[in-house]
C-alpha cells in the first residue's frame, strides 16, 4: 500500500511579512511533485506553526521569511518541534537570508536554507532525500 503514502509538507510564513510569492511557488511545485502541502497563510507565530505541524502530522516544515526576522523565528520553530516530540520532522527555510546566518540556523536544527534563485527541483530533491519516515 506504499503508493498511497504521501509526503506531507507544512509551508508556513512565520512573522509579519506578506511576501508569499516564494512560499506559493514552492507550494505549487511540491504539489506538482505529488506531495500534500498544508499552507498556513501569513503571520504565523512559531507556536501556531508547530501546533499545525503536529495536528497535520507532517513530514516536513518549510519556513519562508523575507523580513529579516528569521534568526529569531526559525530557531523558535525547531525548538518547539523538539519540545513536542516532533524532532524528526525535517525543517527547511527560505527567503532573504544572509550567508553568515545560515550556519546559525543549521546549528539550530534547520536542515537546509534555500535563498532566492534556488530551483524548486532542488528543493523537491532535497525533501525526498532527507525526509524521515517513521
Amino acid at each position: 500500500m506504499s503508493q498511497s503514502k504521501k509526503i506531507r509538507v507544512l509551508v508556513a510564513k512565520p512573522g509579519l511579512d506578506g511576501h508569499d510569492r516564494g512560499a506559493k511557488v514552492i507550494a505549487r511545485a511540491l504539489r506538482d511533485a505529488g506531495m500534500e502541502v498544508i499552507y498556513t497563510g501569513l503571520r504565523q507565530t512559531p507556536e501556531q506553526i508547530v501546533a499545525a505541524a503536529l495536528q497535520e502530522n507532517v513530514d516536513v516544515v518549510a519556513l519562508s521569511s523575507l523580513s529579516g526576522a528569521h534568526l529569531h523565528l526559525f530557531p523558535r520553530v525547531t525548538a518547539l518541534l523538539k519540545e513536542k516530540g516532533l524532532g524528526d520532522v525535517l525543517v527547511i527555510g527560505g527567503g532573504i537570508i544572509p550567508a553568515e546566518d545560515i550556519p546559525v540556523l543549521k546549528a539550530a536544527g534547520v536542515a537546509a536554507i534555500f535563498t532566492p534563485g534556488t530551483a524548486t527541483a532542488a528543493i523537491i530533491e532535497f525533501i525526498r532525500a532527507n525526509v524521515k519516515r517513521t
Binding site: G15, L16, D17, R43, T45, S67, G68, A69, L71, H72, L73
Partner: peptide
C-alpha cells in the same frame, strides 16, 4: 516596519523579531 504596517505596537507579541526590521 511590519508591526507598524499591521497596526501593532512594538510591545505586541507578534512584533517580536520584527521591530525596526524593514
Amino acid at each position: 516596519d511590519l508591526p507598524t504596517q499591521l497596526g501593532y505596537d512594538s510591545d505586541h507579541p507578534l512584533a517580536e523579531g520584527e521591530v525596526g526590521k524593514v
